[in-house]
Design a protein around this nucleic acid. Sequence first.
DNA 1: CAAAGATCGTGAATCGTTTCAAGCTACGCT
DNA 2: AGCGTAGCTTGAAACGATTCACGATCTTTG
Lengths: 332, 332
Amino acid sequence: MPPISIRDVANRAGVSVGTVSNVLNRPNLVAEATRERVRAAIGELGFVRNESARQLRQGRSRTLGVVLENLANPYFTDLARGAEAAMNTDGFDALWCTSDGSATKERRCLDFLEEQRVTGVVITPVGLNSERIAEMQDRGLSVVILDRREYAGACSTRVDHIAGGEMAMEHLLDRHRLRIAIVTGPLLQEPIKDRYTGAMAAGRRAGLSEQEMTTLVRSDLTPTEGKEAARRLLELDPLPTGVFCTNDLLAVGLVNELLRAGVKVPGEIRVVGYDDIELADTSVVPLTTVRQPRHELGWTAAELAVAEVSASGEHDHRRVVLSPSLVIRESA
Amino acid sequence: MPPISIRDVANRAGVSVGTVSNVLNRPNLVAEATRERVRAAIGELGFVRNESARQLRQGRSRTLGVVLENLANPYFTDLARGAEAAMNTDGFDALWCTSDGSATKERRCLDFLEEQRVTGVVITPVGLNSERIAEMQDRGLSVVILDRREYAGACSTRVDHIAGGEMAMEHLLDRHRLRIAIVTGPLLQEPIKDRYTGAMAAGRRAGLSEQEMTTLVRSDLTPTEGKEAARRLLELDPLPTGVFCTNDLLAVGLVNELLRAGVKVPGEIRVVGYDDIELADTSVVPLTTVRQPRHELGWTAAELAVAEVSASGEHDHRRVVLSPSLVIRESA
DNA sequence: CAAAGATCGTGAATCGTTTCAAGCTACGCT
DNA sequence: AGCGTAGCTTGAAACGATTCACGATCTTTG
């Protein structure tokens, strides 16, 4: 049982390979009877088109690559779903990779995608530099940057996290509580840093000194880290009256641990999260949080990639900035 | 700027295409000086190997497909990471698809993967029938079934969910509480059904009648559904004294809602979940749950696929069954 | 010093598609 | 009858890599 090629189908159906190809790609050019004969042969032989050969011949592909940071965070999986939906709508297939936050793995992903000759890449960069982006663009790839600001020569879409951080902080401050803690993940990640920056700015505007805003930097954006952060917070005397967590997983872990310790939320400590994941709404104390349009973000990124890929002539890189919004529940 | 091919590299370096190919694939056959010259040319031209052409010529690929049901559930993303780790270790690349629980989309995924000429597929089947599996095997693909039992002619690996369900129920019953509720997702999914079956069996063995085990079937395995289930449970009079949820997301949503309603967990109602996701440990009431070796499950599946792909002669399909274990925390 | 290796490079054939100019029929029209 | 046209079909030339039998040099050895 050697692999079945278009040639075998042609023999079986008593036509030329060109005709089989036409049945596959422009069926209207082929007479009804022939078409059916060919289709029958395809079925009987169990023929499956060889995409490598097709792509090699055509030079282009209908495939876009997506490089995500991490599958463990529901934030990214929602992005992914949004992006995939948009791509499929436009007739593109998606190739997924995850960098797991490692620049090395990110490079491997990009190499892989380039070797597969995807026509474009949507990426949340980790260690990616402008040089590599430029190289890829030279090779004819469209590159869309997801959720990062500073890449001049490429389309990008992101959420205004500075505004998001401000919202969170302003909400926390609007009842004149003054002892604020900010629990955040690694500040090397731009979106996280922006949330932090926005929150600090809002704090300063409200007259808080840096000392009045305790900052806890955790190594990861997980509930476990949130739990640990809560323990640290509980050692503070006096306790903070408001906490901003730069993502919901942190916030959920933190709130749960506070409750376990008998601290009332929002009674004694108010908490605001960021992301609005499903868990925010189903927490013991439903979480007040900053919602990001995740699905839309992924969708937009994909649309930008498709637009650039399909642009025949020149193409102006677009930067789309989406706005977050405050969702007020019970935790603050 | 036409695409750069191996031929351009050859010209630039003043060698033949065969030599460039050798530098790429068997560098030790090429003299040091030549090798460096070719590498330099590759760098200067920004050459990227065309995987389509390579694969077409070679006939085989070093790529395995993975079809997952759903990215929203951390259970699947852990599987994915386990599988990817194993594949990369063995020098294979992974191609990811999600069926989103739809048989149609699953078929599209498989078609896509077959057209890409992956050498094997790891899949959590949704609507997949044995016929399609046989077809794929005829075409030379290795197929590994993840977390389902009844596919004779293929390797498979799964967790013994019947045992898992039994464990959960036995733990719930060991203090002679007798009013039990089982909250489950769609019973069409085999792993879910097995957990349910196991739990019911254990209940019956302990002398409970079917009526004494209230069953709530929810449409989805999400915290939101768990919350809704809690509301239903609270309408019962008398309240159940123990609840088994067939996954942790359900359990987390349910426990949170119970606590909100002022019901003590485990004081008034004890709850056992299933999966042991990270959230189980960081809940307000840390969740007693049945742990599945998710990472190992994904890893094993990948290993089975690699083994079958690499088997030169005949190959005996293996079925690996992993055991779940009870993790006792506070909720029961 | 000639023969036999050893070491490197070459170049044509090949993989399975798509594409396209050209060929073949049958039909309608004058 | 002759011609044009529309409708189908054909067959060969790509696409970019890998592979392999075969040369071309250079070294070693009896």
